[in-house]
């Protein structure tokens, strides 16, 4: 079976700087895959290429939904990538601060609903039905993520951990095949990180695949089925958590050249 997401030879140049250098990576259906690497290795750039915010210089991005045909994601606009089934969160939280929690999630339903201007003005039966479904589904997602008691709060007034969860809720509302999480545990306390660990497992158990960028090694090691390690825009290793833990190239990238002598 094909992997659900396959990246072949992805290259991204900014002017003269090569941020991604022939990167290969794949995510199998139902797996949690982690992408790790030192700061500046190109992880977020990779996410931006994947989601269409940057246009990659070269390489292929292939998405194969379970039981479906393979599609190329390269060159699609971000909104089309989301429609195809990739949803993401951002490293520096990007919610809609002056909209309510519920509205934030309802925005996630945008690409799966159809109401047009005339529908909005006349509020025909189909539009009302659709609107009810949007609200119901959004609320059920929020309940699942433990945010149901604050649906009418402005997103900007939420505590930090809840904002991170709201970003995940919003991404889930787009009905993704793959969820891309950019440092979801950054800034969380140990308790919140444990809850996040459980949450990600629950999402995986519902049949989603997850690709995650993370610096918290404990979280990465306990969650991941497969880990890719990047440095200077290149993949330097990949394997199971066990293999990565003992890989000399990884240790070198993280701790520097002199690790052997120490």
């Amino acid at each position: 079976m094909n992997p659900i997401l396959e990246v072949k030879g992805l290259t991204m140049d900014f002017g003269g700087i090569r941020a991604l250098d022939h990167l290969d990576l794949h995510v199998n259906q139902g797996e949690i895959v982690a992408l790790i690497g030192p700061n500046g290795a190109g992880k977020t750039t990779f996410f931006n290429c994947l989601t269409g915010l940057y246009k990659p210089t070269a390489g292929d991005l292939l998405l194969t939904p379970p039981g479906g045909r393979t599609r190329r994601l390269g060159g699609l606009k971000p909104n089309h990538v989301t429609r195809q089934g990739l949803a993401r969160t951002f490293q520096n939280i990007r919610l809609f601060p002056n909209m309510t929690v519920l509205e934030n999630v309802m925005i996630g339903r945008h690409c799966r609903t159809r109401a047009k201007v005339l529908g909005a003005i006349f509020r025909d039966r189909r539009t009302r039905q659709e609107e009810r479904e949007i609200v119901a589904l959004s609320i059920s997602i929020l309940e699942e993520l433990g945010l149901a008691d604050m649906i009418n709060e402005f997103a900007k007034n939420l505590p930090y951990g809840a904002q991170r969860r709201l970003e995940i809720a919003r991404a889930l509302a787009t009905e993704p095949l793959i969820l891309l999480l950019d440092e979801p545990a950054a800034g969380m306390n140990p308790q919140e990180t444990r809850e996040l660990d459980e949450l990600i497992c629950r999402i995986r158990d519902k049949g989603l695949s997850i690709l995650l960028i993370e610096h918290d090694m404990k979280l990465v090691m306990s969650l991941s089925d497969h880990i890719f390690v990047m440095d200077y825009g290149r993949k330097i290793a990949d394997g199971t958590p066990e293999e990565i833990r003992t890989n000399p190239a990884v240790i070198k990238a993280y701790l520097g050249e002199d690790v052997d002598d120490a």
């Binding site: 915010l53 919610l95 809609f96 509205e103 309802m106 925005i107 996630g108 690409c111 109401a115 949007i134």
Partner: peptide, 24 residues
């Protein structure tokens, strides 16, 4: 409405908007 929410979201954050599947 769905459209109106998308407008508000666009005012708040264009990039997040696109990532949520809204055609900017």
């Amino acid at each position: 409405s769905r459209i109106g929410r998308a407008w508000f979201a666009l005012r708040e954050d264009e990039i997040a908007c696109q990532a949520m599947g809204i055609d900017k």
